[in-house]
Design a protein around this nucleic acid. Sequence first.
DNA 1: ATACAGATTCCATAGGACTT
DNA 2: AAGTCCTATGGAATCTGTAT
Length: 300
Amino acid sequence: LLEMKRRADARDGTTPAHLNKGGKVASKWAENLVEAIDRSRATTLERFLFALGIQHVGESTAKALATWFGDLELIRRLPWPLFKRVPDVGGEVARSIGHFLDQPGNQQVIDDLLARGVRVTDTHAPTAKLREGLDLATLLAELEIPKVTRIRAEQLGNAFANAQALADAPVHHFVSAGLPAESANSLAGWLGMPGNTDLLLKCAAAIDTLLEAVPETGPVSVGPLDGKTVVLTGGLSSMTRDEAGARLEALGAKIAGSVSKKTSLVVAGEAAGSKLAKAEELGIEVWDEARLLDFLGQYP
DNA sequence: ATACAGATTCCATAGGACTT
DNA sequence: AAGTCCTATGGAATCTGTAT
């Protein structure tokens, strides 16, 4: 790129305008590009994760992963079942992330980016909300073992002190834990498949790591919009929609992309279309920009 | 335990507004 | 004039709670 800029500068004024549109344009273009690349080296975890291009991880999921785990070094070593602790991440997405991270080439890409000066600027501790569900029963329920669902997982969680104890146990111990023979056999079969016991123990170790990283008592700040789902539609004149969304999020709101009966509030700006119509159809509260600004004004 | 349905997310596309 | 940014749209895939 720098070479392109150098050539463009050298050409400036010497090439007929109709062939070059003036070297300065090309020069400025190259400069802007180089600067933009430099600036992009300092980035957020959310953007970094999104940029990896993991299948099923778009902007929304990347943001969720970033806020829940907070640390790239933590995330890149997590076994896939742990990703299911994040709301809106299920089996498909969790496996997709795990599959990506399992490829040595992809880990190398991350190392290369860091080596070239890419920095994540907003590393933080995991959310306190993560503490919930970091136990053996929840893990077993999320490993997707045939015939072992929530109830069976709870029974196993109560019967065994830890994952190692479960991995070492003979089948009849699963039965005495309360499992039906079918579930017990299925679990034993699963543990016998190559890699599965290893996965279980890795998950257990990751849970211990997470428990240490999660803050003891999370700052349970209750915002005025906690539990509310807000949809923004149409154009706003005083700020972009991203800004408005960020402000509302900071007050506890969840920003959604489409209107449903779960929507608490629709903010309709200029030229709002089908989403406003749907909000009216469902009888959902609608604010115009003035009402939004008035509200935001109360919480600077 | 499983099937189903509604809600949500991902992702490509397109058009208009704005910037260079 | 060309390029970029923002927003809307809609199909396909996925998540999740509920009924069977």
